Amino acid sequence: MQVGKHEALKLFIEYMQIEKNYSQATIEQYHHDITSFFMFMAEQAIPSLAEVQYGDVRIFLTRMYDKKLARRTAASKISCLRSFYRFLVREKLVDENPFALVSLPKAEKRLPEFFYEQELELLFDACETETPLGKRNKALLELLYGTGIRVSECCKIRLSDLDFFLSTVLVHGKGHKERYVPFGSFAHDELQTYIQSARNELLGDKEDHGYLFVNFRGGPLTARGVRGILNKMFENSSLQGKIHPHKLRHTFATHLLNNGADMRTVQELLGHAFLSSTQIYTHVTNEHLRRTYMSTHPRA
C-alpha cells in the first residue's frame, strides 16, 4: 500500500497515542523529529519514504554532526526515526528499515545537577509569603522538592489528589501511570496555607477548575509558568548559576540517597520504570562522598 509521508506520520501518531499510550510531550517530540527528516528528504530530492537508503541516512547523520548536535540529541532523533520505520515495515508501507543498522551515538555521561542543602535554604529564604502569589510559590517549591515529582506531573495535580491526613499526593505520571507520593510537614503546612488563604483569591470570580496551582489570571498553572516562577525565585536569592525544575527533582533523589534511602524506594518515589534510570544518582552521591573525603581527611 502506497501512502504519502504525511499520511504515514499521521498513522504513526495514532499508533503512539492509542497502542503505545505515549505522553503528549513524547508525541510532539517524535512529530518534530520526523518532520525535520521530511525536510531533509525534500533537500535531497527523495520522493518517498520507501526510497530512503542507508546512504541517505549516513548523509543525515553527517548533517547532524555538522550542526554540532549533542550526542544525546542525535541519539534521540535516530531512535525516533528507527521506531517510525519499524512501524512502517510492520504496516507493510515500506520494505526495509534504513535506520536498522545505524549505531546510536554514545551519550555523554553527565551527572545530574543538584542543590546542596545550604543552597536550598537560600532559595527557600528568598520566598516572600505575604501575598497570594508568594504563598503559592512557597507551596510550589516545597512540593517540588518534597516529592521529587516532574513539573508536568505537578501541573496535573487536583485538590482531590491531596490527602492531608496521610500527607500523600496522587501523581499522574508518564504513560498514564499513577503513584502515591508522600510529602513532609513543610510541604503540608505551606500547601494548607496556600489553599486556605491564597488560592481562592487567585481564582477570583472564575469557576473553580479543580487544579491545585493557579496562575495570576485564575487559570491552571502551566509548566512554562512554573519555570518562570522558579527563575524569579532564583534571581531573588544569592545563588549563582541556573535553575530548572528538574534540578529540584535531582536534588530530591540525591538528598534521599545521601541520607541513607535505598535505591528501590527512590525509584518508586520518582516513578522510574527501570532501576537503571535511578542509578545515575549513585554516581552523584559517590562523587559527593569523594569530595567530602578529599576535603576533610588528613591524608587525602
Rank of each mutant, 00 (worst) to 15 (best):
A70H: 10
H255T: 05
T62D: 15
Q267K: 15
S197L: 00
A8G: 10
R199V: 13
L101M: 12
T292M: 15
A8K: 08
A75V: 12
E178W: 14
I18F: 02
E28I: 00
V284N: 02
L162F: 06
S277Y: 00
L143F: 09
C127A: 09
S276M: 05
L248P: 04
Y180F: 15
R86N: 10
C127H: 05
Y54S: 13
R58N: 08
T131M: 04
I229G: 00
E201D: 11
M1H: 13
R72E: 10
F87L: 01
A45W: 07
V284M: 00
Y54I: 15
Q279G: 06
E268Y: 12
D208P: 06
S103F: 07
A300E: 03
H32Q: 15
D66M: 14
G204K: 06
R290I: 01
F164M: 05
A126Y: 09
T168H: 12
L101D: 03
A273T: 04
E153A: 09
V284A: 07
Y145K: 06
L248Y: 00
T26Y: 10
V284E: 00
L202W: 11
S48Q: 15
V151R: 09
L69Y: 13
G134K: 10
H250Q: 07
Q267H: 03
E178A: 13
S276G: 08
S185E: 10
K135L: 13
E287W: 06
G228V: 01
Q192S: 01
Q240T: 12
K135N: 07
T285S: 06
N137G: 07
L49V: 08
I34T: 07
L203R: 15
I243R: 03
D56G: 10
L170M: 13
R63N: 03
F99V: 04
V151M: 02
P298E: 09
E207I: 14
A139D: 00
L212A: 05
K10F: 14
T265W: 02
C127T: 12
F40A: 06
F40K: 06
G210Y: 00
R264E: 01
Y30A: 14
K77M: 13
G173Q: 02
H288I: 10
L248Q: 00
L88T: 01
G219C: 02
E43C: 11
E190K: 14
A253E: 00
P132Q: 05
R224P: 06
Y22V: 11
F12N: 01
G225M: 06
V94M: 04
H188W: 08
T222W: 04
L275F: 05
E142A: 01
I157C: 05
D262Q: 08
N21H: 11
L289H: 06
P245Q: 02
L269A: 07
Q53C: 14
M263E: 04
Y54A: 14
F216I: 11
D189S: 11
F183W: 05
F183Y: 05
T35I: 09
N137D: 08
A273V: 01
S277N: 00
V57P: 02
